[in-house]
Design a protein around this nucleic acid. Structure first.
Lengths: 116, 116
DNA sequence: CAGAATCCTAACAGATACTG
DNA sequence: CAGTATCTGTTAGGATTCTG
């Protein structure tokens, strides 16, 4: 997704939020980092439908926007850890709302499947 | 954006939510419908960066997912009204969280601009 | 007014191979 | 382990034109 497609100057708050979290996998990444630090490969295991390439791209953009930070340990083989910045932590309410709604949606889908 | 890129079976609630609202303009549309019914052209005026074509596409998908409904008045020229369904109303907390965060973000951006 | 249809290009994103 | 590079097919999405 191209960056800066939304016009924040216009003042629409939802567009401003999208400016930061609208990437295909960004909110999912933030969600997985809400429980703590994660390594690259661990993130990928939790998001099997996101390719390594896409994961790297989205992590980059989140870093550039100051949402997450990366710590590299100079060991061999290299070890990295991703975590939310203080700024990224402020997104918690947004992601939590998505989590809550998604759980309801999944339950509804399950119930409907059981009814059929 | 292609439909059904997220795997809801996997159970990640955030991915389930994205399944519904991940379109480029979907959450913005829902946001504008939260205050009530809107007509096609009125929606477009509120989202100048969204082309007529894109608006129509996103409205279609939202309708297909049962989030919004459309009422057509058989007058000439045709008049249509879009509104949230009951299901769509359940998304309020999600969009409101985005709105709240976006307002904070805009304030922060304004403050920083004033400091410089 | 509220779209649908068509054309066209840039951007996206998968697959694969390579690297410190 | 944690990525990057390249190559390539696919999709997104703008511009324009047409319609009931």
């Amino acid at each position: 997704m191209k960056r800066h497609i939304y016009d924040c100057q216009k003042g629409c708050p939802v567009e401003s939020t999208l400016q930061i979290i609208a990437g295909k996998w960004k909110s999912v990444i933030i969600y997985h980092l809400m429980t703590g630090t994660e390594r690259f490969n661990d993130l990928q295991k939790q998001m099997p439908d996101c390719s390594r390439r896409m994961l790297a791209l989205q992590l980059h953009e989140l870093q550039a926007d100051g949402v997450i930070q990366k710590k590299v340990y100079p060991v061999i083989p290299v070890k990295t850890e991703y975590s939310l910045t203080d700024f990224g932590q402020t997104l918690r309410p947004v992601i939590t709302a998505m989590e809550t709604w998604g759980n309801l949606y999944n339950q509804r889908a399950t119930r409907q499947a059981a009814t059929n």
